[in-house]
Design a protein around this nucleic acid. Structure first.
Lengths: 191, 191
DNA sequence: TGGTTTGTTCAATCATTACTGAACATTCTG
DNA sequence: CAGAATGTTCAGTAATGATTGAACAAACCA
């Protein structure tokens, strides 16, 4: 199951005085955990591992080659998975003007993007319910209840979730900058 | 891909005068769609098909044998998948006192249950973020930002989602019974 | 009681998906 | 320009997960 237990020896940068290789173990565990979590939400495990490493890597941006080395995976796999993560909108590519290498990093607001992705699913479920209701057009109301409930709750979520996200953004921009006033994610070429 | 195009001939009950076998086609499509949607949220396709059929079947409760026949699947598969759906909380088992046969049907409030399931995932992500922050305890704040954002938005959702669900329940019990006043889902042995 | 119907479990098979590694771009560098 | 470094694509393989079908268990009935 865990075939690559060694890939952190190469990146011992996260060792503290207290725990010698303990931290490396924890890092490995963190990455693996991230992979499992991604799997839980129907994304490939390797994508989760990449995301996991980008969450804790120093520096926060990593090249394809680095990712392949740290995660002990083929470049092909990394290439495919970063493409997926880019598409989902949770990482972004940064190419330094003078360098030919590309770097990836977690996209600020990654989670809003994921929520938007989730909205697509909710809409799909509402539409399915409506499709079902069309099929049951001539049936008695009590038979249609199941589908109406399904349609209504998803319509409800479609209305509420954006509002909720907005509340989040607002709360975030209110208190966030007080901690790190200079970091504006909007045009984030501050590296 | 679609190997069983025939399983609705046996259940032509949902044919209207207008569309002869058109409705059967639509039903098949509906079930298949439901399967794909479930797959999208990391549940097995067959579970989605069962759920789909239970959404539109007449009567709304179906036995294991019926499910196997309609969906052209083995009893083993149905047994496993119904168990899963029971566990997730979106269907329930009804055993009529006089019959030895068990029936399944969509659980009223199925969607609240699914949302609660979803909450488990959200909590898992928040915990992962906290795990990451523990790893980065000694790092500079700007390096910790990624994880703090992740932790905060998930904590936010953990607070907000239950409130949202409650609002839904309230709105539902307000207008729902006006349409079908007698149908109280709480103790639902009204079949 | 023996026979029938119903439901579960599990080993084996089938299908799908993830992953690798090598061949092929592409871009920079000397 | 040749050579080196970086990235992508894709056919083949490995790993995983879904599905079957047969054997078993339990409940009911005559």
């Amino acid at each position: 199951m865990q075939q690559n237990l060694t890939y952190l020896v190469k990146y011992p940068s996260r060792q503290t005085e207290t725990g010698k290789t303990e931290t490396a173990q924890d890092t490995k565990h963190f990455i693996e955990e991230s992979g499992l979590l991604f799997e839980m939400v129907a994304l490939p495990r390797m994508a989760g591992r990449i995301f996991g490493w980008l969450l804790i890597s120093n520096p926060p941006y990593q090249s394809l080659g680095e990712l392949a080395e740290v995660l002990q995976a083929s470049k092909g796999s990394i290439s495919t998975m970063t493409r997926l993560l880019l598409q989902v909108g949770v990482i972004e590519r940064m190419s330094l003007p003078s360098q030919r290498r590309d770097y990836f990093r977690i996209k600020p607001n990654a989670w809003s993007h994921l929520t938007r992705q989730r909205m697509v699913q909710i809409t799909a479920f509402r539409k399915l319910a409506e499709q079902g209701l069309a099929l049951m057009a001539t049936e008695t109301p009590s038979l249609r209840d199941r589908l109406e409930e399904m349609r209504d709750i998803h319509a409800f979520c479609e209305r509420e979730l954006p509002a909720m996200l907005e509340r989040w953004e607002q709360q975030r921009t209110k208190e966030g900058p007080s901690i790190a006033p200079e970091r504006n994610h909007a045009n984030s070429h501050d590296w």
